[in-house]
Amino acid sequence: MADADDAAEFARETEPYRRELFAHCYRMLGSVFDAEDLVQETYLRAWRHYDGFEGRSSVRTWLHQIATNGCLTALAKRRDADRRVLPSGLGPPEDTGTAALEPDPRQRWLQPVPDALVTPESGDPASVVAAREGVRLALVASLQHLPAKQRAVLVLRDVLAFPATEVADMLQTSTASVKSSLQRARATLKEQAPTPDHTAEPTAPQARAVLAKYIKAFENADADALTRLLLQDASIEAPPIRAWFQGVEHCIPVLRDHVLGDPGLWRMVPVAGGANGQPAAVGYLRDEEGGYQPYGVIVLDVVGDHVRRIVSFGDPRLVAVFERCGGV
């Protein structure tokens, strides 16, 4: 049947780009759930219009055009206050003694992504490293501060390496406008993340060792071990809690007095491939009956033998995403 042949051809032509499209939508939207919905919508739209695709651009360009415009439409429905951020993107760190450690459900929070969903299936080491660098938390968080069109231009040009002329065609604008938007986006991004990201690869032996020490310290409620593990200027943030902290002298009292509890309260499982190109673990909290319930995902910035930053995403829904990917 012709329809079956068309469907097979469509799948053969478009499926190789699914992970790249998912990563693109994730960078644009900052949410693993929104990105999944947008990719599904992209493929539905592409299938509906596949018989009209004339090959004037590559299939890759055509799919990214559909996905990008879908992201821009979704972002246009949000207010600036609804952008997905981390607590550190909303203001300075808090003083330990005065901070309110209550969730802020009104804020849209950035979500982590399993590396398994965004790394190429080819296994080429250079491609895997590039894919991980393109979804680092610092980068994705910074992207959310850009206007939507600038965000699209920067990702399409600097991350996906599309030529300026193709980006202009995708966004139905001029090449000059693309170049101007890219210049402004790069300047803003430099202000948001002025220092290079030296976070260790999640599969590097040293990074795995640091993650193992972190998990052991947390499960044993060992504040002293965490003190030795954190850099002096380390930071912790835990969306949906708005307050965040920087410096061991502030981080450790918060962890010791409000988070660690008794030994055995926490159970953590390493994420095999990492999250956002960084070492990560899925966390579970012991309930009153002694069972463990999903808490969320913890992502570390590891520098050498120490942790520079802890981002603890307290959203139980994320646990199912990471378990589904087979990395836990």
Score class of each variant (00 low, 15 high):
132 R>C: 11
313 F>C: 06
59 V>K: 15
81 A>I: 09
279 P>G: 00
27 R>N: 08
300 L>I: 10
248 V>Y: 01
199 T>Y: 04
186 R>E: 05
182 L>S: 13
25 C>F: 01
85 V>G: 00
17 Y>Q: 12
243 A>C: 03
208 R>N: 07
18 R>T: 11
297 V>W: 07
205 P>N: 15
93 P>V: 12
34 D>W: 14
172 Q>G: 04
194 P>S: 00
104 D>K: 02
187 A>L: 04
111 Q>L: 09
179 K>F: 02
33 F>L: 10
56 R>F: 04
79 R>F: 02
321 V>Y: 04
141 A>V: 03
87 P>D: 15
162 F>N: 08
178 V>D: 11
296 G>N: 05
284 Y>M: 08
126 A>W: 06
43 Y>Q: 05
245 F>L: 08
264 G>L: 02
168 A>P: 04
113 V>R: 08
21 L>P: 12
135 V>G: 03
119 T>V: 15
30 G>Y: 05
12 R>C: 06
213 K>G: 01
103 P>Y: 11
16 P>L: 06
226 L>T: 05
164 A>G: 10
227 T>S: 12
45 R>S: 10
322 F>C: 03
182 L>H: 13
100 A>W: 03
35 A>G: 13
35 A>V: 09
136 R>V: 10
131 A>S: 14
9 E>P: 00
276 N>P: 10
22 F>W: 03
206 Q>Y: 03
137 L>C: 04
325 C>R: 12
110 L>S: 11
145 H>E: 09
326 G>Q: 07
229 L>C: 09
71 C>H: 07
162 F>H: 14
201 E>W: 08
210 V>M: 06
280 A>N: 09
61 T>E: 14
6 D>C: 01
65 Q>M: 12
26 Y>L: 06
274 G>S: 08
312 S>V: 01
294 P>W: 11
129 V>E: 15
141 A>L: 04
71 C>F: 05
40 Q>T: 14
312 S>Q: 10
32 V>C: 07
115 D>C: 05
308 R>T: 01
287 D>W: 05
112 P>M: 01
160 L>P: 00
315 D>P: 00
